[in-house]
């Protein structure tokens, strides 16, 4: 992955909307240029988080399948 996360949120085992809320909290506390990574096992978040990243005008770096979970990476661009 080209972008190295500046913050990693391990939300594995947490249900919708938990992981998304943690992502938004980290986004609000962060600064432009931050790369935030969320680990999650929740399927709802896999749809909701990329949609939120797009709607909020930030950059979705990628969604990566890991062993038994997935990782969503966003870059704070605004």
């Amino acid at each position: 992955m080209a972008e190295k996360p500046t913050k990693v949120i391990d939300a594995r085992g947490s249900y919708c909307p938990g992981p998304l809320m943690e992502l938004i909290k980290a986004y609000k506390q962060g600064k432009v240029g931050d790369v935030i990574s969320v680990y999650s096992t929740d399927e709802g978040t896999k749809k909701d988080a990329p949609e939120w990243i797009r709607k909020s005008g930030n950059e979705l770096v990628g969604i990566f399948d890991r062993q038994g979970y997935y990782e969503i990476v966003m870059k704070k661009t605004r």
Binding site: G13, S14, Y15, P17, G18, M21, I24, K25, K28
Partner: peptide, 18 residues
């Protein structure tokens, strides 16, 4: 068993964000 957060904790988390 799945450690679902309580409704009140979920409200409080939302209040931290918005």
């Amino acid at each position: 068993e799945k450690k679902m957060p309580s409704w009140l904790d979920t409200i409080k988390q939302a209040a931290e964000v918005g």
